[in-house]
Design a protein around this nucleic acid. Structure first.
Lengths: 236, 236, 236, 236
DNA sequence: TATGAATGAGTTTTCATTCAT
DNA sequence: AATGAATGAAAACTCATTCAT
């Protein structure tokens, strides 16, 4: 057995990362064997380990140790280290989806909507370091695991639609310039929000500034919103 | 997985390793004992392997195999896998320094200088993928190796000085706004230039666009210059 | 590399290596190449390293590093690690010989002679830790190297002769009992003098007493002399 | 040198390893999964290898080879070569403890008790060569491993108590002199019993006498008892 | 469903020794 | 006589994975 992709079960789509005690089977609190709980526990630990150490750097033993179960269960449920890694990717991308629903950007004025989008993107990256690190790690591996994550492409399409809508409405209202490509803009926003999180260690070492310090974070947030708005705004 | 040692280039993407074939063994090309050449050769190969596979993913054997010497020499000169990795970081950061000297930005008009700086930064990241990957890898390891690289901090100071000079002159000439922090601006520029290279795999997977395609590259380049100039320019 | 200089002196305990700086090339102080001096230097360093680390524990590189010459010379003069080890044994046993000549025990009264012998033996072991350790190390290797040391057997014969003479004179004078075997007595004396030096680390750990502390040393010295004299004396 | 793995017993001298064949797998002799048995097996083999070759001289592969399991298990249970070595020390010191309990010296007359103690000590060292060698080896390493063995200090305290009790009773009965320190006496006894075993190879080489020959052993035993009793006895 | 023991195939590192200059 | 570079063989240690219970 190598892949174990059949084992990488349709995971808990829609359950946020913090999944503290989503104790859905509240009927019997003392059940001895709870597969779902076991799996969730493994995934949680694995997310930390993979995002902290990378795919190659992560140790199956280390994950198992911090789990409530044993290494064997890890293989039982996820088939292999790679299978587990993929399940983690799947979970992490699923987590984002849930949050995005709450934005209702389409109801906002284009400029305000753009601001809201950037701020959301900023906040999301700022908080979800595991996500940022896992994307980084994926890129080191040529994105070959994320390709198999079903929720991946869908999510990105959604974002582009949101941006396209914003741009269209902004152009229509005369607030935005008309020569901006939605995907390029998404890349621009992502760049600004991603880099300061993903590369905060080298940044910190280079300049003696920790980008996650509250004061710096606030300033960066404002700067990025500012930069994006200046970029899309129609000059008069 | 069973990567084996043959691989090591999941990310070269057609473009050959940028490491210049520093063919400095001027005098006699076939000298058997040439420590400098030996070290250079090891470093060259190691740069590729580490940037392609990460620190943990890289295999000492794989490096040695593609070298003109044996694994033993690797330890003879660099002490350990980590020592070699660090030497690679040192070299890579050193390489940038050299290039930066040729810019003479201080002689240009602020706007043109800023444009030149951004274009240089863009081109550098676009070409030096090994550098980008190694920075990414360093961040996965919390920047703990780069911290020990002496040339590291110095280099960054230089960039900041350049930016400060540009900003000061731009403010003086009334072209730039006066509320921009040099380090923040550097972060902004870096973000834009770094992200599309470092995360091009997930980007490609998500949107079916390869950011390193010539046409896209040119557009990104123009966009980034545009974004930065809009950001620093004084609104009138 | 990496090993560096931390090694090879876990046991010097403040007392400097006893190897006398036999600086015998007094003829020409500035000769560039002085084989004898080089050899002596290597031997000195090797004595420390071997006695500190054992035959297997000693590192050829470590010896070479602390030498004025290079590793190559070590092989040039001594052929191999084992050859060097044997040369060290030879030197150390040679050193003893010289000292023993000064005792003139045969001129002393039997009891005083015995006391002098024991005290000499005690002092010698107490000071010549390298010697004690090397004997210990030899025993771990089944004494197979010392067997080839020419000076070895000779030295022991001398000691036995001394003891036989003492015993004979003591018996004749009615001071010593007549049923003591010289070799056995030598073993007894050696045991008492050797053990507290050779095993002082475990002793120190076990009882929190360092047997090389001056006060303890003096008491041990007296005790051992006492024990030996009580053992050989004729009871009346 | 090239010792390889076949050797590992240059010092057994005819006498089989004293490690008792603790055949404790009572119930089922062929159980495949028996961690205790596995550990015991590894420890047994390791004791021989370490005592025969020293810590640095011992080869993990050599140990594994003579084991019923693989090298991997050795690391599974003992973590490292040093960890295994330490476990061996622990076991060996533990073994002594057990035996010492059977003596009941406190029930004997002081002189007889002293004789019994010396004879026990003699016999123990004479038989437990592995123990003697391991102590020797520990001293080469500055006792730094035994320091971490919990059972170590305790054991020594017990011996001292026994001796103190003997001395006190002997003084009270007028049989022993009153100026003997218990720890010093222990050192004296140990010296006599340890040296002829630990250094028997150099002794044999020097004098052509093997101290472990039955006849010589008996004579040594008597001599040592005699020497100790003469030392502690009150002169009248 | 769950578990601790077991493992083979790597992977890094070390070491005594020799070579070219 | 002297040197620094080079090396093959072996040694310690690690890892993802599977087995027996």
């Amino acid at each position: 057995m190598k892949k174990g992709s059949k084992a990488a079960e349709p995971d808990t789509n829609g359950i946020p990362s913090e999944t503290p005690r989503t104790d859905a089977r509240r009927s019997d609190a003392r059940r001895k064997y709870d597969p779902e709980q076991t799996k969730r526990n493994i995934l949680e630990v694995a997310t930390q380990e993979f995002s902290a150490m990378g795919l190659t750097g992560a140790r199956v033993d280390a994950i198992a140790e911090r789990t409530n179960t044993t290494k064997r269960m890890l293989y039982y449920y996820f088939g292999s280290k790679e299978g587990l890694y993929q399940a983690v990717l799947e979970k992490v991308y699923g987590d984002i989806r849930a949050l995005e629903q709450d934005l209702h950007i389409s109801e906002l004025d284009p400029v305000e909507g753009m601001r809201a989008l950037v701020e959301f993107t900023f906040d999301y990256h700022d908080r979800q370091r595991d996500f940022v690190r896992l994307v980084t790690i994926e890129n080191i591996h040529g994105a070959k695991y994320v390709e198999q994550v079903k929720t991946f492409k869908g999510r990105n399409v959604t974002v582009i639609h949101t941006i396209e809508d914003l741009l269209a409405r902004g152009i229509a209202s005369g607030q935005f310039r008309s020569d901006v490509d939605a995907i390029d803009l998404h890349l621009l926003i992502s760049s600004l929000c991603f880099h300061r999180v993903g590369n905060r260690h080298t940044f910190g070492t280079a300049f003696g500034r920790d980008p996650s310090h509250p004061r710096l974070r606030a300033r960066h947030r404002a700067m990025i919103v500012d930069a994006v708005l200046r970029f899309v705004r129609k000059e008069n």
